[in-house]
Design a protein around this nucleic acid. Structure first.
Lengths: 178, 178
DNA sequence: CCAGATGAGTTGTCCCACAAACTATATTCA
DNA sequence: TGAATATAGTTTGTGGGACAACTCATCTGG
């Protein structure tokens, strides 16, 4: 299949082989394909969860990320703050999270998980992790580990410029107490 | 961005290190971050090109991919064919591609690049390739190569198994090398 | 020649992202 | 103190993109 072209990606891979490596232009396409496949396989697993992968992402961050404010949550996830408002609305309506007023700064609301939300997330995380593995089934164990590693390294470097520590293994300290 | 979205998912960078490796749930989030960064750094380079990275991918596929029909093009890029219609409209209006009727099947239109389109793409590919390298600057040369390789392998594999047409073989027949 | 399938375009609808405006608090500093 | 400014969050309006349903033209098999 793809093997026709030396195991390279779809049609675009048959770049006329110039002198140098010339297959780099597909990078964005590769990324897009993988992310689309991720959404495609994960979304159906999330069932009633509002806003599918988005909701999952938020719920996961609320539980594991400990962001002090809604704005911090949005910034971390790369979601517009005006969008975050109704995403949280819907998750709250579903009883998964709630807005907790910060007495020290009454403008701010910290989003906290409810017992139902925690239970829900725990179940979903299991399924999502399995879906991820399926998604990476084309690679052997070592390759999977390598790929996850490099990807994490890249993403963390891109998003968290400041933290000297690996933000993906420890990041809670950065946020000043709410 | 599109959810995006271009979207992304599964944040929770700072999962507490439980008993086992537990950072895998961030996979979707990492992907989303990387793709968002890709769009963010590439789009500005594309200037007047209609539909930014979308237009770029189409143009690139038209030139290097040699898809026989508009539908094949859409399937390869994961774009709805009704959307493809106006994407091609805009690229054609900009003088970068044109619809060529297939005398053997007068329903089908093959999208071909114009001289202007080819010249434009050549320039843009240069810039995009540089932007990609910048994006991957967090990795050393060997790691970059590995990452590109694994990503390409994954994306290609996903395209094969997944639905509809197999874009990697679909375009074989029908036309001799352009 | 007919019936069904297929490539493409058109229309209408829904959802989402984003900008701008608004409310309420907080902070800074004269 | 209090006026100016900044920040957290919400609301509203708008535009674009995705997708479904429909139409049109053409191909294919009987």
């Amino acid at each position: 299949m793809c093997g026709y072209y030396f195991g390279m990606s779809g049609m675009a891979s048959q770049r006329r082989s110039g002198p140098g490596v010339h297959t780099e232009g597909d990078f964005g396409w590769h990324l897009g394909v993988l992310l689309a496949a991720y959404h495609g396989s994960v979304s159906p697993l999330l069932g009633e969860l509002p806003h599918a992968t988005r909701g999952y992402q938020i719920l996961s961050t609320v539980v594991h990320g400990d962001q002090p404010t809604q704005a911090a949550l949005a910034a971390h996830l790369g979601i517009d703050r005006t969008v975050m408002t109704y995403l949280i609305d819907d998750l709250a309506k579903a009883g998964l999270v709630e807005r907790r007023l910060n007495p020290a700064d009454r403008r701010a609301r910290k989003i906290v998980v409810t017992p139902l939300g925690a239970k829900t997330l725990a179940e979903l995380e299991q399924r999502v992790r399995e879906a991820e593995e399926t998604l990476l089934a084309g690679l052997d164990d070592a390759q999977r580990a390598t790929f996850r590693d490099l990807l994490r390294h890249l993403a963390c470097g891109l998003r968290d410029i400041e933290p000297q520590v690996d933000p993906c293994t420890a990041a809670e300290h950065l946020l000043p107490p709410a």
